[in-house]
Write a protein that binds this DNA or RNA. Structure first.
Ligand code: FES
Ligand code: FES
Lengths: 141, 141
DNA sequence: CTAAACTTGACCATTTTAGTCAGGTATGTA
DNA sequence: TACATACCTGACTAAAATGGTCAAGTTTAG
């Protein structure tokens, strides 16, 4: 089970953005340099974030991106959904009555994986961008 | 973030095994048929489970595998470790002081991913094979 | 002595990931 | 108006991971 770069970068970039967007729009170039993420890749990611109304774009010189919501209202769930980083632990289609092995009933571990999926998603639902900003100021060891 | 088949199959197979091993050793062929998992693939998985002393093997006709511990003492953590299904959310090497971007300090989201890793691992540490057996008898809707 | 079942290791097709590349288009500033 | 900056879009691809298969054994109950 691992987290992909796309999801990791999306959150990283948004935290970076949230720190600076009070004043001016933040350019992807800046984020790219500060966070060490490929500019071209960031563009793909922000295209999706924009479609999902998490950020707004401002074109032209001095342009960049700005948050489209209050940091408190942007949960990790929203970010992950936007960039298609989905948590998938069950193998079967959930809606279907059928199991992952093609049989007529759910497999013997289905409930377990479903529980795990919920467990993980709960984490994402309870974390907002705001939390991450605070968290970082705390300078925890 | 998704669970791989290897981890899913390992747990599936062990639950199946745990249900039947009171009487006789259980052959991989039986598990393969009951759970719809490729026999050759199961062999790879059980080879690892054996090395990690989770199961014992009995060779020859009427042979098969048997649990090597009490179901209550086999946590999901143990199973996942055995088959190299590791939870990896941070990108960096944890021991290192360096960040994932090659910089001298940890990245701004490092703490978050670390917390997530703990969150997921906690789930695995608190589930034993025994729990899964009980869970399945409950015939939950 | 033979069939069932474990054992080992090499091999491989497909899919996913993590990007790159090559073109645009819009707009603030000089 | 020129032009640099920064967003925008879609195609493409190398490398890694996944999810197996295949082949050639060895062991032992009956
Ligand atoms: S995971 Fe849903 S039936 Fe197996
Ligand atoms: S994940 Fe550890 S430094 Fe970025």
């Amino acid at each position: 089970m691992k987290l992909t770069s796309k999801g990791r970068y999306a959150v990283m970039a948004l935290v970076d953005l949230a720190r600076f967007d009070n004043i001016n729009p933040v350019s992807l170039r800046d984020i790219s340099l500060r966070q060490g993420i490929s500019l071209d890749y960031l563009e793909q990611i922000f295209s999706k974030l924009k479609k999902n109304e998490i950020v707004k774009s401002i074109r032209g010189t001095q342009g960049g991106y700005v948050l489209n919501k209050n940091p408190n209202d942007i949960k990790l769930t929203n970010i992950f959904n936007a960039v298609d980083e989905k948590v998938k632990t069950v193998q079967c289609r959930k809606e279907s009555k059928k199991g992952c092995n093609g049989k007529a009933t759910k497999c013997i571990t289905h409930n377990l994986w479903d529980e795990l999926e919920t467990h993980i998603n709960t984490f994402f639902e309870n974390k907002s961008l705001k939390d991450l900003l605070n968290n970082n100021k705390e300078t925890r060891v």
